[in-house]
């Protein structure tokens, strides 16, 4: 089910991933995200189609739209699913305490809204033959008490941290804001997002949007490279579900090595630029 300005085209795109039925609710009033209008559309859709689960991404939009829709339906709402299972009843696995442990949850309502953590499931293209059906969501006359007036892109990196397949993060070991460039260059060579420990966010070296950890973003990429990060529990909480972890730190006793798959005990100023070159060679 796709809600948006040019919903039909985007819904057809979703068909490539194996959906059996496709619905689209379009219209000028839906061109820009609006919690009230989108929530109204999805609630109407759920009432009409009675899905067991309404899945959406746990993105900035999904985290706003999920509870909005659930509240309209009075149904269960689960955020950040990393596993989804059905054997007679639905069960969702999700991290709590920023990944220090996981919970398996169930619910008691006929429909549940479930947010999917970006990157947690593999996308596989399948041949799909479903055609898009228009769904009249009844949003035409709906007014909203909150309206998006404008959208501005931030100056930060081009790859979104929580959606990135590779994340390269820098910590206090980079010594000064001018050296964050080393992290960004390695990230660029890998097509990765650039992350940071809270220490360098609080120091004002990089923006908060880069912070990984319990009070920043939780990431679970295929590869996480921690450069000059000690591995405090709050940092580990945000990244320890990464599939492969590399630690570059000159202190062999740093806790980051306890979660790392590969470690280099050395000065990051020597290793990071050399690694950037090596990655360049492999990529070309």
């Amino acid at each position: 089910m796709l809600v948006g300005g040019d919903a039909n085209a985007a819904a057809a795109e979703a068909g490539k991933y194996g959906a059996d039925k496709l619905f689209a609710a379009g219209g000028d009033e839906l061109a820009v995200y609006n919690s009230e209008l989108y929530g109204t559309a999805l609630a109407a859709f759920c009432r009409a189609q009675s899905p067991d689960v309404l899945l959406m991404g746990s993105t900035a939009m999904g985290k706003d739209l999920g509870p909005k829709t659930a509240a309209k339906l009075g149904c269960a709402c689960v955020s950040d699913a990393v596993g989804l299972k059905f054997d007679g009843a639905w069960e969702v696995r999700r991290p709590v305490f920023a990944g220090k442990c996981f919970t398996d949850v169930t619910w008691s309502t006929a429909t549940a809204v479930v947010g999917i953590r970006p990157n947690a499931f593999v996308m596989a293209e399948k041949a799909g033959s479903a055609t898009v059906e228009n769904f009249d969501a009844g949003t035409a006359g709906v007014t909203s008490k909150a309206v998006v007036k404008s959208v501005a892109a931030s100056s930060g990196g081009t790859v979104e941290l929580t959606e990135a397949e590779i994340v390269v993060s820098g910590g206090r070991g980079i010594k000064g804001p001018e050296n964050y460039e080393l992290i960004e260059k390695l990230a660029a060579s890998l097509g990765a997002a650039a992350g940071a420990s809270r220490a360098i966010v609080d120091a004002g070296w990089v923006e908060y949007s880069h912070q990984v950890g319990q009070t920043g973003k939780t990431v679970g990429p295929n590869l996480y490279i921690a450069c000059g990060i000690s591995g405090a529990i709050q940092h580990l909480a945000g990244m320890s579900s990464s599939k492969c972890i590399v630690a570059i730190n000159k202190d062999a006793a740093a806790p980051i090595f306890k979660v790392a798959d590969y470690g280099v005990v050395a000065d990051l100023f020597d290793i990071v630029p050399a690694l950037t070159d090596e990655v360049g060679k492999i990529r070309s």
């Binding site: 149904c75 269960a76 709402c77 689960v78 069960e91 991290p95 709590v96 990944g99 220090k100 442990c101 996981f102 919970t103 398996d104 949850v105 169930t106 619910w107 008691s108 309502t109 549940a112 320890s240 579900s241 972890i245 630690a247 090595f257 306890k258 979660v259 790392a260 798959d261 590969y262 470690g263 280099v264 005990v265 050395a266 000065d267 020597d270 290793i271 050399a274 690694l275 070159d277 090596e278």
Partner: peptide
């Protein structure tokens, strides 16, 4: 409406493979 059935620890991680860093260029390679 949502109930927790089970808490489980994250997957245990394997040993860290340390790369000899005598020569930084070789270590990076």
């Amino acid at each position: 409406l949502v109930t927790v059935k089970l808490y489980s620890p994250p997957h245990a991680r394997g040993e860290c493979k340390l790369i000899d860093a005598e020569d930084p260029a070789a270590a990076a390679r």
